[in-house]
């Protein structure tokens, strides 16, 4: 596994684990939660900038840390993350809905068991095996990231839809809603919080996996980190790592904003 950012409680999905899932802590999100993180990240970047300006860089460092190169890596990283996340959502959410319909429900346990094994699979192993099979490149990095993130999002979607109160579904049918009506007007809106958590989860996983894309020559900020290690240049290593951290936290912060904003009003109490 890469950045390892599995939401622990929500994404542990085998039946036993879910049964033991404790209730979420009541947490209220005030405006401070949305302001603290960007201010902190801004400060980190400022300190990093100040620090580099006072370093005596050798030619290698200067080349690696030249803005065009750094910018390219950041853009690559964002592209890898965005693309793989979109693909994950396109695959996982419809599949999750499908697996909770009556006709296909019996396959859901297999998907969950697979998700469980998938969680135990190291992302780097998956990437390397794909590379040995398909060769290096961006395509492989994206396939790897998608394969790695699909399962947690899928199991989140299934869990979210199955957690919807059966009585509500019956009530919806009772007032004469059609099956698609029940799904889109009742079940899905109620499952939105868990699905959104899944999306956020996918984003964070993919930021992490994108860091490993460097091993399959697919670029990203991992490149700078790897350069730092291989060339034994601490400055490069630190810049690469800090930028990756800032990017990951920014993505997570944006996702948390979306999570709050997109939640149906009746279910919006924070947390």
């Amino acid at each position: 596994m890469s950045g390892g950012p599995v939401r622990p409680v929500g994404s542990a999905v085998d039946a036993e684990t879910r049964a033991a899932r404790p209730p979420a802590l009541p947490s209220r999100f005030g405006w401070t939660d949305f302001v603290v993180m960007p201010v902190f990240l801004g400060l980190v970047l400022l300190v990093l900038w100040q620090w580099i300006s006072h370093q005596d860089l050798d030619p290698i460092e200067r080349v690696t840390l030249a803005w065009p190169n750094v910018r390219r890596r950041i853009v690559e990283h964002i592209q890898l993350t965005a693309l793989s996340t979109v693909l994950v959502l396109i695959i996982a959410i419809p599949l999750g809905i499908l697996l909770t319909r009556r006709q296909a429900r019996r396959f859901a346990p297999f998907a969950l068991a697979l998700a469980n094994v998938g969680q135990a699979t190291p992302a780097i192993g998956l990437l390397v095996l794909l590379t040995l099979w398909l060769g290096v490149g961006v395509k492989v990095a994206i396939i790897g990231a998608v394969a790695y993130a699909v399962l947690p999002v899928l199991s989140n979607t299934i869990a979210g839809l199955e957690d919807v109160d059966r009585q509500l579904v019956e009530a919806a049918r009772g007032i004469g809603m059609s099956m698609p009506g029940v799904l889109f007007k009742v079940e899905f809106p109620l499952a939105v919080p868990l699905v959104l958590a899944g999306v956020r989860n996918a984003l964070v996983l993919n930021v992490g996996t994108a860091t490993l894309a460097t091993f399959v020559n697919a670029g990203g900020l991992g490149d700078i980190i790897q350069d730092g290690i291989l060339l034994q240049r601490t400055v490069v290593l630190i810049v690469g790592s800090v930028l990756t951290v800032v990017l990951a936290l920014t993505v997570d912060w944006l996702a948390s904003l979306a999570e709050q904003g997109l939640r149906p009003r009746g279910l919006r109490n924070g947390g």
Binding site: G3, G4, P5, G208, A210, T244, A248
Partner: peptide, 8 residues
């Protein structure tokens, strides 16, 4: 946990 492990 949000920080990619390679970066940490």
């Amino acid at each position: 946990l949000t920080i990619p492990s390679f970066a940490l």
